[in-house]
Design a protein around this nucleic acid. Sequence first.
DNA 1: AATTGTGTTGAG
DNA 2: TCAACACAATTG
Length: 202
Amino acid sequence: MDGSSIDQITSSESKSITSPPGKKLRRAGSVIIDAGFEEASSRKVPSSQFKGVVSQPNAQWGAQIYDKHKRVWLGTFKDEEVAARAFDVASHRFRGRDAAPNFNPLSDDEIAFLNSHSKDEIVDMLRKHTYRDELAQSLLERGDGRGSSRSTGPDRQLYIDWHVTDSGLNGPIDTGRAEPAMLRLFGVNVLEVPRNSGGDES
DNA sequence: AATTGTGTTGAG
DNA sequence: TCAACACAATTG
């Protein structure tokens, strides 16, 4: 596809945006648990406070949802929150409005995206950790279909930062080029960087 | 060997 | 429906 020069992340010491991808970012507005108690001998992993999230023996987190007496595995995740939101996504897709999400209800855009895919597809995305990108991709290509020609402008690049939003989108978004307005509409911080910067990131 | 995902059980 | 636990299947 676009094998040539994906996105050169210009370092850009701009203060408006936070750290570049690859760095662990702090999340805001999340629930912080206090895992204060631990038994002396038992190595039992602490149970998750989130629905649909189970701890794995390896100190990771698994997400699962039950559909018709059957367990549907949603994959394993490094972060408890991500696993919890994976459940939220699946929950919305499986049970529609009856879903009991761990976090805020999903945005209309995301729900529309969910409804445009089968359960298996959504589960597959979650398990392969590609849901976020698929969702972003879908939203970026949406619209009136008229502004798409302009989005391919080669003289600008977008640096996209992320943070946890109410709509439930998090993680880095890989967009070659897209309409900033579209991204902002989705609650993503977008910084347009002129190409001549060409800095490197540390 | 390490990790993921399933079998299974038991509680709500 | 839900998750804890045990362990088989899978992956590196």
